[in-house]
Amino acid sequence: MRKIFTFIMLGGLLVVLLSSISELPPMGNGDNPSFNEISEYYIDEGVEDTHAPNLITAIITDYRAFDTLGEATVLFTGIAAVVSLIGITHHSKNKEDEEDDLHG
């Protein structure tokens, strides 16, 4: 019963999402609002500014390098959280296991 109800609700959500397609700008059009002066600046001046032919690398490590620093911080925080959750309790258990292996 709950599954059927969820199915109907999500079907309604899908219809709403799909009906918004006719209002979106057409895909693959060079005049889309997403293709604004910022992108044009990156494409026109990126190589002169950074001397890197790969414009995506030019953006993520030069124009928006602070963003990439935050990205590295997120990665660091994630690994620190994982190790603090399951890393530390394990080491004591591991030593006991090794001792059991040695004695047994």
């Binding site: 997403s34 414009l55 995506i56 953006i59 993520i60 990439t68 990205e71 997120v74 990665l75 994630g78």
Partner: peptide
Amino acid sequence: PLPSAMILTGIVVAIS
């Protein structure tokens, strides 16, 4: 190039 560069950040956050 701008959405691709932003999605690169998103992928890393998704992994974390």
